[in-house]
Write a protein that binds this DNA or RNA. Structure first.
Lengths: 211, 211
DNA sequence: AAACAATACGTACGTTCGTACGTATAGGCA
DNA sequence: TGCCTATACGTACGAACGTACGTATTGTTT
């Protein structure tokens, strides 16, 4: 108990320990469901007992895997990030850098919000406002991921700008706007506004006009 | 108990009943504090016991005034609306309709988020994402207030457009963008970004360029 | 005066929460 | 083989939650 092992193996080697594999599988199943709950009702909507009941586990079994509530939060936030990368960021890497990749990112993002990947829509739209005033590791993780997303957009806009693909804009300001509009689109979709994606695309197109 | 009286008097007459006046005063004190808590941690952060402790009342006394938790939520949402109207909307009515009033609304809004009027920043930025996926009267109230805000902006933009004050834009789309940017500004301020208001003003100025 | 109404409080009940602790099982390793 | 570890479960505890109910106090109304 004093010598708690991180369940993170040395980065080079593959995990072969069957116990750790089983644990990782269980953790993944739990955090996957936790992300859905958190996108719907926020991280505060999570509880060890609820997750256990929903997944047919015991409350203490869930506790064994995450030790504390904050650990569960952090694991859920990390799981959301990985699912988001798979659904939005990595598919967009197929597009060439610059304007095309920005379009791909926005298109995949709108799919991510519209389909939606998580039951309650965008995970960060649901949870960043809840934690942005509460210092701590959860806020830091959410804010860091949000910042990464902004940087991703602005970097691609900068690339498009340098390549002469788009008219002169401030890439950081445009990324800020794009993210703002996407978040508003997510909320509008949640409220039943089916026209929101169209509006979002129109705004983004404004940033991508040829010079 | 069956014949519950609404504490809303006939719209014409002033309230003279000392008991109702006292109740209204107590309710106002409670909801004022509740709005602060809800802006910080969300409406879910509210509890009868916490409000009672913070304000030196008894838990059952608070319960008497609001009967149920949902009633407390609705009263808090309504209190936030009234405080917002006083801080942002009504002061802006001093400006002439059109572009000037839009500027006044945005300036007062940024003050509202920057000062801030509520401890945790914008009340709707904190709570609409939490309730946008949960059907019920709380969601309806929050969504209605948000829609009123959007309509207010777009109406003033339309006025500016008809008066030839600004270049040709889609007023609804611009209002959607403006609101999106303001919400993102609130979050950025919460995360310690002091440059956010400047960015917001630059974006809004883009909608208000002369034709 | 008597009857009623609206605030307030005290108490109590059942539920859910996070956490702590002991135990059992299965897998890895000396 | 024996020893350790990671999952899982069962149980228990204190705290906080929303709500119900009875009672006292104060103000209004008849």
């Amino acid at each position: 108990m004093e010598e708690m092992s991180d369940n993170v193996p040395p980065p080079g080697a593959a995990v072969t320990d069957g116990r750790l594999l089983r644990g990782a599988r269980s953790r993944r199943a739990i955090t996957r469901h936790a992300v859905d709950i958190a996108s719907l009702e926020g991280l505060n909507g999570l509880s060890l007992g609820r997750l256990a009941t929903d997944l047919g586990l015991s409350k203490s079994g869930v506790q064994t895997l995450f030790k504390t509530k904050e650990n569960l939060y952090l694991a859920t936030v990390e799981a959301a990030r990985e699912l988001f990368l798979d659904a939005v960021v990595r598919p967009a890497q197929a597009a060439p850098p610059g304007a095309a990749r920005v379009r791909a990112l926005i298109d995949h993002w709108i799919d991510y919000a519209e389909k939606p990947l998580f039951t309650g829509g965008c995970f960060w739209a649901a949870n960043l406002p809840d934690f942005d005033s509460r210092p701590g590791p959860v806020r830091d993780a959410l804010a860091g991921q949000h910042q990464d997303w902004l940087s991703l957009i602005s970097a691609q806009l900068r690339h498009a700008l340098n390549a002469g693909e788009i008219a002169s804009i401030d890439p950081d300001l445009a990324a800020f706007q794009a993210d703002a509009v996407l978040n508003a689109t997510n909320t509008a979709l949640r409220l039943g506004d089916r026209d929101a994606p169209g509006r979002a695309r129109r705004v983004i197109d404004g940033f991508l006009t040829r010079p």
